[in-house]
Design a protein around this nucleic acid. Structure first.
Lengths: 238, 238
DNA sequence: CCGGCAGATTGGTCAAGCCACCTGGCCTCG
DNA sequence: CGAGGCCAGGTGGCTTGACCAATCTGCCGG
């Protein structure tokens, strides 16, 4: 370990050693040197390789576990998690519990992305997709009374829109934002009136999509999510 | 602290002790026993109070730091963070770093996000911000001949818009998208004509912002990025 | 061939100590 | 008397070394 010391002129803030180890591991994952499910070297070996003590390495590992990036199994080893977006987004739940204004911020992001998706879907969806979407939306009528079923219906509606938009980046961003706000979705759909309005919005959306009108689709989605947001603030004010 | 031991029948998975300390601290924050900015007891004391060793407690603290729930300052103490929404950003960033594969459709995402930012900025920017932005854009004229200076100018223009939009989540998403597309920015601004058109777009943007017209701002941004995209494809076709 | 036992491997925890940093009070000097 | 510097105490950061507990592996005996 003669040359383990790397750019040390970086800010020497708190937790220099442990954070350094943390960043190195993170980068190894980002760069693909470590892939999902892969096993890390034993803590004793890895600590030696990184030039830090085992407790410090353990702090770094524990931090990455908290972020659902790593997981460790006693007696087996430490592994890279599946890195599923859902897992990686989970830690945010805590902040949403504590700070409800964060929820509103999330909604802004979702609105922007969903609107873009709707707009693209109006241009790129196949006729078959639109026909199937129309049929699917009709099924929603029978689910108005079942909260769980309707939530599932709503999720799939937006999922189909994403697929039709053919924009993997937008889909990926939206997936991130959505997994964050999934917890709140249950609240938003609580009242029957809210659900009925959502269904009506979905039907309106299908109409403008079939008319191949991107701008109208954009606008329709903004309004739809505005309704949802109102339903949310009704339930949980301030 | 005779009764520190709490529900131990919970799954005894890996990291039982450290995780227990972690959960206890988390719950104290959720319940409001610890509020934003408050100082925690010294690690040595807290470890004793929770009935764990200091290294284990440190693992728990490090995990909470990774989640942006705590922060520690050397020589001062460990504190509850501000718990503000922008702290959501960091975990999302990693998610995007890992997930991002397709660089192709990136521009769509940027367009959607920038447009949303412009729209929000039209509503939320202070008069002072807009006045300063106007002055700043004027400075752009003198930079038209210097490629590097103009790129820097362009980056700051969009940065100021983000700041004025007051939407940490959108900013964070956009930051991720931008780091991915930074490589191409240099190409887009290569021709003098492209730069002149970009500057004109910026000036137009300032006008609609001062008019407090969100929809026009949205539209102006879409058109602006459309121009940039055209400049890009001119230079580097498919 | 198979089952089980024993050692090696690995993560989990702890104890004790040193260092680096910040703060605040004391003391000295002007 | 005030201002500046010095120093001690408290705090987080890090290391060493050791032991415990869960798991895996392979050998050995039935």
């Amino acid at each position: 370990m003669q040359e383990t010391v790397v750019e040390f002129q970086t800010l020497q803030r708190s937790g220099a050693v442990a954070n350094q180890a943390l960043e190195i591991i993170k980068q190894m994952i980002v760069r693909g040197e470590l892939t999902a499910g892969q096993r890390l070297p034993a803590q004793r070996d890895l600590a030696a390789r990184l030039g830090v003590s085992r407790p410090s390495l353990r702090e770094a590992i524990r931090a990455l576990i908290a972020l659902n990036i790593l997981e460790s199994r006693h007696g087996e080893g430490t592994f890279v998690s599946s890195l599923e977006p859902e897992l990686l987004a989970e830690p945010i739940d805590f902040l949403l519990q504590v700070n409800s204004t964060a929820l509103v911020a999330l909604f802004e992001a979702r609105r922007a992305l969903e609107a873009a998706v709707a707009s693209l879907a109006a241009e790129r969806a196949t006729d078959l997709e639109l026909a199937q979407l129309e049929d699917f939306v009709k099924l929603g009528r029978s689910k108005l009374d079942d909260l769980d079923a309707f939530i599932e219906h709503d999720v799939e509606f937006h999922g189909r829109l994403r697929a039709a938009a053919r924009s993997p980046i937008l889909s990926s961003l939206l997936a991130s934002v959505n997994t964050l706000s999934n917890a709140s979705r249950r609240q938003t759909a609580r009242s029957a009136a809210t659900r009925a309005r959502a269904l009506a919005d979905h039907e309106a959306m299908v109409r403008v999509l079939k008319a191949r009108n991107p701008q109208a689709a954009h606008q329709a989605m903004v309004e739809h999510l505005q309704h949802v947001l109102e339903g949310l603030t009704d339930v949980a004010p301030a």
